[in-house]
Computed example of a mutant assay.
Amino acid sequence: MSAADRMKVLLFLALFTGASGALFTLLCCGTEYWLLAADFCLCQPEDRVTMFHQGLFWRCVFTAASSDFSILEFWITCLPLPVSCTPPGLDRLPLRAVPTLFRTFWSIFLVSGVTAVVIGGLLVLCAAPLTNRSLYSAGGALQICGGVCLLVVMAMYLVWVQVLDTLEQFAAHQRSVSGCPSYQLSVQQGPSFLLAPAAGFLCLLAGLLFILVGRGVQGVQTIPGPSETEL
């Protein structure tokens, strides 16, 4: 296999990985299923449960009739009406500064990551077919930046939910305000959150492959072709 053929195979792998990373990025950042939760009081005569799914932009709340819930109950086609969607965050939590601060940084890293992935993909498309080394390198660098931003968004979300004990504070606050000592809050990570590490990894891999393509393009262009006397 010649050097040009190897470069075409490498470019195909880079484009496939980049397209998959961009698709996963749009799915994890454009859907509101990062956090799935349900809160209810066991002392209530009717087993009415307030359920919500939350993403990076919206928090949608609806009422269900059972405390046993699954991921399928959160999809839009299965949600009972009415559904109320507001900006995310635990609005009834007294210490709102931490969620607000984290939402601000989520937005910064999220917008930076998506923008870097999109612009990097456009640069790579403009560089085809194997002619512009600088565009491949720049597109690969932007893909890497986008992947890092997505991983930072995921890490900050984990810090907010797991390390800062924000949900535990919210549950304790609700027990005191509602007067229900048996108040329960059930939380699990949603499919949007699970797509984030895959999107970040694919963007990082695509960026490295595009940088290799850029270096390979320079090597192919410096290989002298056959002279007229040799032909």
Rank of each mutant, 00 (worst) to 15 (best):
S20G: 14
G21I: 01
G21C: 04
L23C: 15
L23R: 06
L23N: 09
F24C: 11
T25R: 02
L27P: 02
L27V: 09
C28P: 04
C29Y: 03
E32S: 07
Y33R: 04
Y33M: 14
W34N: 01
L35T: 03
A37Y: 04
D39Q: 07
D39V: 12
F40Y: 11
F40R: 05
C41L: 02
L42T: 07
L42V: 06
C43M: 12
C43A: 14
Q44A: 04
P45T: 05
P45E: 06
D47Y: 10
D47T: 15
R48N: 06
V49I: 05
F52V: 04
F52R: 01
H53Q: 13
G55S: 04
L56T: 02
L56A: 03
W58Q: 12
W58Y: 11
W58A: 13
R59C: 03
V61I: 08
A64R: 00
A64Q: 02
S66Q: 10
S67W: 06
F69C: 05
S70N: 12
I71S: 09
L72D: 15
F74A: 10
F74D: 07
W75H: 12
L79G: 13
L79H: 14
L79E: 15
L79P: 07
L81D: 10
P82A: 02
V83A: 01
V83F: 08
S84P: 08
C85N: 02
T86W: 01
L90I: 05
R92N: 12
L93E: 03
P94V: 01
L95F: 14
R96K: 10
V98C: 09
V98W: 13
F102K: 00
R103N: 15
R103Q: 15
T104I: 13
T104D: 15
T104R: 13
W106C: 10
W106A: 09
I108S: 03
I108R: 01
I108C: 07
L110C: 12
L110E: 06
L110F: 11
V111M: 07
V114N: 06
T115F: 02
A116S: 12
V117D: 08
V117W: 00
V117G: 05
V117Y: 04
V118W: 02
I119D: 00
I119N: 00
G120L: 01
L123I: 08
A127C: 07
A127N: 03
A128G: 11
L130D: 07
T131F: 14
N132S: 15
L135F: 10
L135A: 08
Y136V: 06
S137A: 13
L142K: 02
Q143W: 09
I144F: 11
G146W: 00
G146T: 03
G147C: 10
G147A: 09
G147T: 05
V148N: 05
L150G: 13
